[in-house]
Design a protein around this nucleic acid. Sequence first.
DNA 1: CGGGATCCATACTGATACTG
DNA 2: CAGTATCAGTATGGATCCCG
Lengths: 123, 123
Amino acid sequence: MTVSNEVSVLDRLFTDGKLAAVCPSRIVLDHVTSRWGVLLLVALSERSMRWGELRRVVEGISEKMLAQTLRTLEADGIVDRAVTPSVPPRVDYALTDRGRELVALLLPLMGWIADNADDILAR
Amino acid sequence: MTVSNEVSVLDRLFTDGKLAAVCPSRIVLDHVTSRWGVLLLVALSERSMRWGELRRVVEGISEKMLAQTLRTLEADGIVDRAVTPSVPPRVDYALTDRGRELVALLLPLMGWIADNADDILAR
DNA sequence: CGGGATCCATACTGATACTG
DNA sequence: CAGTATCAGTATGGATCCCG
């Protein structure tokens, strides 16, 4: 288990020395790294949230993109949507197990960005 | 140094309980997770490449987006552009130290996506 | 070969209105 | 509260042509 995993990761990503245009990874990558997808996943990383809460926490997102992005993530099995039929209705969004796996890999990246952002933009 | 870094990562990302709309992280995040940014970084992760090489390896990228994305990454100090004045001209792109740091965090994520993409889209 | 400039299609956003 | 529907304006990306 001490194999450098960088080589194997690259082997899995490259096909015939290229990053194929038509492949499942490209589609999922676009979902996950979409402008709002990343932020929603980070927002949900600590706890589940309601619609209105997500709207407030992820500043700048429009209702349209919130709905659209959540639907995509839900369809991908990354986010779970739980409806509590009440008046007024209550809908909670949470990460699935798969979503938590993903976020675990996403957070270090976000941390690096948070650490380096000022420095990068100061150039 | 055994502090759970998940808490601190979130602390750094959230401001006043929110993901601020106007902050350096959001800008850099958009650069890094841009549609083509990720793929270019992965392509350069193993070795430096020439313009035409990147164009071929990252399938589907247009010349405009290749130029634009490379310029952004260069301005961010993530990618280095080395011009060899010859006829025909030769331009090589490589990761900077900062770029290598970033890619080290990006590859595990890409690996997970490659592993799970089929499963995710099969639903 | 390595781009820059231009034009066009699409995607995204914002505002507003409406519903269960 | 948690959305959906619609429309208009804008930003982004893609295709094409051109140049040193």
